[in-house]
Computed example of a mutant assay.
Amino acid sequence: MIVIVGVIQGMVIAFVLGFQSSNSSGKKLLSAILLTLALLTIKILLDIFGLYKYPVFQYLPVAIDTLLQPLVYLYVCSLTEDNFTFNRNKLWHFLPVLLFQMHAAITYSVTLIEPNFHLKYVIAEHYLFYNRIKGIEKIVAFFSIAIYWYLSFRKTLNYSQRLSVSRRAIRYSNLIWLRNLLIGTGILGAILFLSSVVPTILGLVDSFGNVKVFYGYLSVLTYFFSIRGYQMILPSEVKVARLPEDTLTKQMESNDFADTSEPIIEVERDYSDILSALNKAMEEQLLFLEPELSLKKMAKTIGYPTGQVSAAINAGFGLNFRTWVNGYRVAEVKKRLAHSAYKHLSLTGIAFECGFNSEASFYRIFRQCTGYSPKSYLQEIKREY
């Protein structure tokens, strides 16, 4: 049931991401990853439920063992490369899966019209070399896993190392999740290889138990990437629900209701000490770079009650907490876009490193603060230079 629910969830999130109006290559690739994970998991479910004994499921064309690896790699590229776009030049990554899928589709089409199981087997094995091709597919998939894992991990690690130089002792969170995921995947892959592939080649054990473990891991990946996809979807849904009134729009876009739950102290109070501590926290400690920064966390950092900090921000800056923090983040993004040291980073990568935690909210807030979209602003900078 856990596997089935994971498959359903992954497919739902994949279709929602795929049909969103955003042209983000990252969203499209994440949608493709979720669909691939779901299809790979369905393969073992067909075997568990014994569906392969029915003619319509025999030789079902799902030869996608070499699809997930390039998709994950290209998704990593979309997070780490400047102005990444998925174009025709990148289609060669999918040549192996295309060839294997074409063979699988031909085999399925030819054998489907033959009702006799024995004749199906003869056609598939003696004329179309089905199992031989599947064996080649598994070998290609193994080398593909190793190569793309190395490329993805190296790109993620290099990206994190470049960013660590510019963060001035502030902890960066962008892509740490992906680095840890790749490390876990590499360890599991090594374990599965040693405990399954090698003994199977030597004819020592039946590796089906390890296959179950592998597909269980695919289910975990499906849940994980579904959560990532949901995080991308949610800001867009909130944006559509906004009302046109200026005051209410600002409140809803700030998403700061939880931070202002405590009573606000009277405006007449002297907040100079709190304001000084706030400015120091933002300008010296650069707390706005923390994606999970909240009013409570800020109050705890500077050592004042949450209600007083909220009131000080309202009285001293005329803004609520979230809008005030986002102002610092937008200013930092503008500074980095104008600096040559950050040319190797994508717009989304810079935004994440400046404290934004979703692409949709970054684009919305940047336009709200500057009157430009991030891409338009970057083009204006390039014209000036």
Rank of each mutant, 00 (worst) to 15 (best):
V325C: 07
V198E: 08
G10L: 01
K90C: 00
L337S: 04
K138P: 00
E268Y: 08
L234E: 09
Y215R: 04
H93N: 15
L286Q: 10
V330G: 05
L218V: 05
G229C: 05
K280T: 00
G186I: 07
Q368N: 12
W324L: 08
S166Q: 10
Q251F: 13
R329G: 06
G135A: 06
V165Q: 10
L74R: 02
Y385A: 14
S294M: 07
I191V: 15
I2Q: 05
V197R: 06
F15L: 09
L99H: 09
L175W: 03
T222I: 04
P291F: 11
G216W: 12
I365D: 10
L163Y: 02
S21N: 07
E114C: 13
Y73P: 02
P96F: 14
V211A: 11
E81A: 11
A14C: 04
H103W: 14
L99A: 15
F224C: 04
Y108T: 05
F49M: 12
R383D: 03
T185Y: 10
E380M: 14
I106N: 02
I264F: 10
E262N: 14
K212D: 00
I106Y: 12
E284H: 13
F57M: 15
K27F: 01
Q101F: 08
R162K: 13
I64P: 04
I176V: 07
S276K: 11
I274T: 12
K28D: 00
F352E: 04
T370L: 11
I191Q: 07
K375N: 07
K297H: 09
V16N: 00
I227H: 03
D206Y: 10
R322D: 12
W177F: 15
V7L: 10
L204S: 11
S78R: 04
V12A: 01
K280L: 11
T301E: 13
F224P: 00
L157K: 14
C354E: 08
H126E: 14
V267P: 05
S358H: 07
P374L: 07
Y271C: 03
F366E: 02
A104W: 12
L99N: 05
G303Q: 03
T249D: 14
T80H: 01
E253M: 15
S376H: 08
L337P: 02
A63K: 01
Y150W: 15
G327H: 08
K28G: 05
N210M: 15
K250N: 07
Q9Y: 04
I176M: 08
Q20L: 12
E283P: 00
L286Y: 13
A360C: 09
V62K: 01
K90T: 00
F362D: 03
I64Y: 10
D259R: 09
F19D: 02
L295E: 09
A351Q: 05
Y363T: 00
H126R: 15
Y130Q: 12
I136V: 13
N158K: 06
F225K: 01
G135D: 05
H118N: 10
V220F: 14
I350T: 04
L45Q: 15
G216L: 15
